[in-house]
Design a protein around this nucleic acid. Structure first.
Lengths: 198, 198, 198, 198
DNA sequence: AATGAATGAGTCTTCATTCAT
DNA sequence: TATGAATGAAGACTCATTCAT
């Protein structure tokens, strides 16, 4: 019998190494040699566990998106569905949770965003994630805004989130969580209150 | 006898081919062979005119950012400095001018954004451009908002612009100019009017 | 407690899997991984039973040649040594027995023939087999032909047998047993009768 | 302008190196590294001229078969169509011309025969060649034999030719031209004379 | 006896760059 | 100015083998 339980160790280990390498040298520079060296294993092991470099990249992207998604879902689960403002706040704050806004994660996310335009399997993952965020936002907003307005504001919030991530990826100081949240909170306050007044 | 004026022909020709190749296969897939074939010239010529692949990429990024910048500057030149709202509109609309929001341009822009995190010369170009946008926005906003508030809103508008570009890069329909402008217009209206009331 | 009698099960199982894989993808494509998967066992087991891939290939070739040889020997044992024509017929028909002319066997045989030119241990196996066929044929033919003529005709029959196998390996319809036997029978009839007349 | 006329030099140079390497280590051992080293050029050049290893192998096989084919065609061109025996002799002798029966050529031919069972493009080349030989033989034989008999004897001659090549590939002394021709000549003499008598 | 995790050498291929022409 | 022949390093991947379990 071979060593058991290795997949559960190796897979996250390699995914993490991938993110670190992308953080350091970018997706272009992320070779299997570099990734496997970072993980402290041989290059061949990537094929063993992921069937090739592409499988590893896909798994890495899936991991990034999934942890974003579950972070938000968990937050939402703790808030009653009638506390709309709180739920929207949870979605926004989930996008800016400390674990998510590490340089490593943000740069990997952006690298994959760029790459997904030319890679079908990455594209599908990206779209699924994008739609989930939009649908969460619109769902909550529809409780306090018209359907049309909810759609409009959801697009605004999504653009702000992604824009702040994008700019944070480039900025030396990274994503500034407090400022980002405040900016979106301000946007929502104006959009929702103004409409509510009428 | 060398043909004269060739640089003026070859350089834009190769820069354009670069953007088209990036549009088709991404920065990862943009090889010298592909670019030169697309331009209808030999591979060696890139070294002749740009000193290497990196020189060509840098020139291409410079071209993308410059045409964005000049588009906005030209628009601003035609509007008196006291017509604040018009000037801000010009900045926003300059970022969503038809020439700028072609798929080719947007994908190239995003590819370079991602790449600039790991390439010093691309990074410098990116930062210069980023600061110019921010400074333009803040400059105008300060005419109608407090310094602090102007800074805040400028960051919001910049995030919206970049976020909408980012999302447009991935969306099958590309950037939807009208909707993007309307979304930012709405944001500005609320930020500025509310403040003006006080 | 180890399972007993496993070698008797595993060895033929793996040899057969080897022939099937060679039949499907050729000797070039016959990897340990493919063979062991075909046999339904793990890759490591090949080393256990054959000491490595080469040992398995050698055993497979030995198996192909041996079953050819024993098929002929058995047939000869049933025919008195003075029934020359019958004995020669037995040698020929033994080479075209249904079990031997399966696509799987023929392709494996040819792959090894080609390979044996560059592999000493396969070469030795091949030569032993070749000489046995030749010596069988010549031995019978000497009973009805001069030594010199017997040698000549034996070479002719051997060339026809191998040529028909070779061509059968490539032909979509495989080796056509009846036609092959008839062709050699015809050759022998002319060679032997003509000489006998004189 | 680059060096001109290089393709005419490099292509045969690499094809010849391929045959020499196959002669030495077999098709399995014929790596691009070995072939290019034998040719005294870099490995990358194979892609430049043949688009990859497979292209080189295909070109090599084509070269082997073509020189066999043209050798025979040239001989036939010099013999009037009514000199049947001479024409058949030309076909046979063309197959055993000194240039064709070099170890290098014979081993390459056999390696490709074996490989063509698992490679579609090699298979097509092989079949075309096989049919041409058969059709040449049958065409001539029909001038002196019945259609049915011509077909039968053509298959016999083809089997003898291929069988003698096959055995020559393995034999330390290689193909023995004189003996091979004499063997086939003898076969034909009996088949044709006997029939002609009746 | 048997597994499959792990390795490292080796495979083909791609690629930016150089250079003779 | 422009070509494309040529290189050599680096890429991803394959594979036979070893070994702990």
């Amino acid at each position: 019998m071979p060593k058991v339980g290795m997949p559960e160790i190796r897979r996250p280990q390699l995914i993490n190494a991938t993110m670190e390498v992308i953080n350091e040298v970018g997706l272009t520079g992320a070779s299997v040699a570099l990734i496997s060296r970072k993980a402290g294993v041989s290059a061949g092991i990537i094929n063993h566990y992921f069937g090739g470099k592409h499988g590893l990249l896909e798994a890495t992207m899936r991991s990034v998106l999934k942890s974003l998604g579950t972070g938000i879902t968990e937050r939402l689960r703790q808030i009653p569905s009638d506390q709309v403002i709180e739920r929207i706040k949870a979605i926004v704050e989930g996008n800016f949770a400390p674990q998510q806004t590490e340089s490593k994660v943000v740069k990997t996310w952006l690298a994959f965003w760029s790459q997904s335009m030319h890679d079908h399997s990455l594209y599908r993952l990206q779209r699924v994630n994008e739609r989930r965020l939009h649908s969460h936002l619109r769902g909550e907003l529809k409780k306090v805004l018209s359907t049309q307005r909810a759609e409009f504001v959801a697009r605004g919030v999504a653009a702000l989130i992604d824009g702040l991530w994008l700019r944070g990826a480039l900025a030396p100081e990274g994503i500034q969580r407090e400022k980002a949240i405040e900016l979106i909170r301000d946007y929502l306050a104006r959009e929702i209150e103004l409409t509510e007044v009428h």
